[in-house]
């Protein structure tokens, strides 16, 4: 049943220098999402409210915020998810430097992405040379396709406690970049070796598998199970498992050991 009446939107207003939550009353309409209510506040009561958004369809990853303390896309969070009598709190992503109101500076994510070596295609097979193009079979596409669903909303980076609470951005690239690395490392046509980087610079050992990144991902990418843990196991192959280390030593040049 449609819920009538007003909803109290408790929005964070302020800058890095300071601020507070401010309550706004918004007329509730059927099917309304949090971003609709925030837009209503911006249009009718607070023209100077800063909020980042683009597609309003859960695909651009711009309107990430913390709704009632939980990292969500505002455009994909319906108001009827919450108790109608309770105010809905909307706060900016806590992990990143605040610019103003609900807008944060997520530049660091792009800076760390730049440090990841891009795809380095290996030599073409005889068949590929004849056709003049790469060929990938469906079973090889399937696994990495999941990682390519990422919309870079950075909710996973926001909820990762290593980045959020400890601000250890110098030790860990975060779940988003782990997915980028997994996408490249598991690519059948890639010939670059990123395992030393994954262990050291990207800091995969800083993840303690608490799976909050997977929990908040709006694209339902199984970040931990399909991305981070497989990368950890590849690091184990190279640095901790004496059996695979010995096999590696006996087969020099074969970094992608089978």
């Amino acid at each position: 049943m449609a819920q009538r009446g007003n909803v109290t939107m408790r929005l964070w207003r302020g800058t890095a220098a300071g601020g507070q939550f401010v309550d706004y009353q918004v007329a509730r309409e059927e099917g309304m999402v949090v971003l609709d209510a925030v837009h209503a506040v911006q249009a009718q009561q607070a023209n100077d409210l800063s909020v980042r958004w683009n597609c309003k369809a859960g695909k651009c990853g711009s309107c990430s915020a913390e709704v009632n303390g939980y990292p969500r896309l505002m455009c994909m969070t319906r108001l009827d998810l919450f108790d109608p009598g309770e105010p809905i709190t909307v706060a900016p992503l806590k992990t990143f430097p605040l610019v103003k109101d609900l807008v944060t500076n997520v530049r660091w994510n792009f800076e760390s992405a730049k440090r990841i070596p891009p795809l380095k295609p290996g030599p073409l097979t005889a068949e590929e040379q004849r056709k003049g193009e790469f060929q990938m079979m469906q079973q090889d596409v399937d696994r990495i396709q999941e990682f390519r669903k990422c919309i870079e909303c950075f909710l996973c980076q926001d909820t990762c406690h290593v980045l959020r609470d400890a601000q250890d951005t110098d030790k860990f690239f975060g779940p988003r970049q782990m997915i980028r690395l997994a996408n490249l490392e598991m690519h059948p046509k890639d010939s670059a070796d990123r395992i030393p980087m994954i262990k050291k610079e990207a800091g995969v050992g800083m993840c303690n598998i608490t799976k909050c990144c997977t929990e908040v991902c709006p694209e339902h990418i199984r970040i931990t199970d399909n991305g981070i843990i497989p990368l950890k196991e590849r690091v184990v192959d190279r640095y901790y498992d004496p059996v695979t280390m010995l096999l590696n030593a006996l087969r020099p040049g074969n970094t992608k050991l089978r």
Partner: peptide, 30 residues
């Protein structure tokens, strides 16, 4: 890998739940 999630969240509170700060003043050291 599953139990690591279970005990890090419950016993170490690193973190106890998503977007909830842990009780420990020490950050997870890796």
């Amino acid at each position: 890998y599953y139990y690591r999630k279970a005990y890090y969240r419950s016993f170490f509170t690193m973190p106890p739940a998503c977007a909830v700060r842990g009780a420990s003043s020490h950050a997870y050291p890796g």
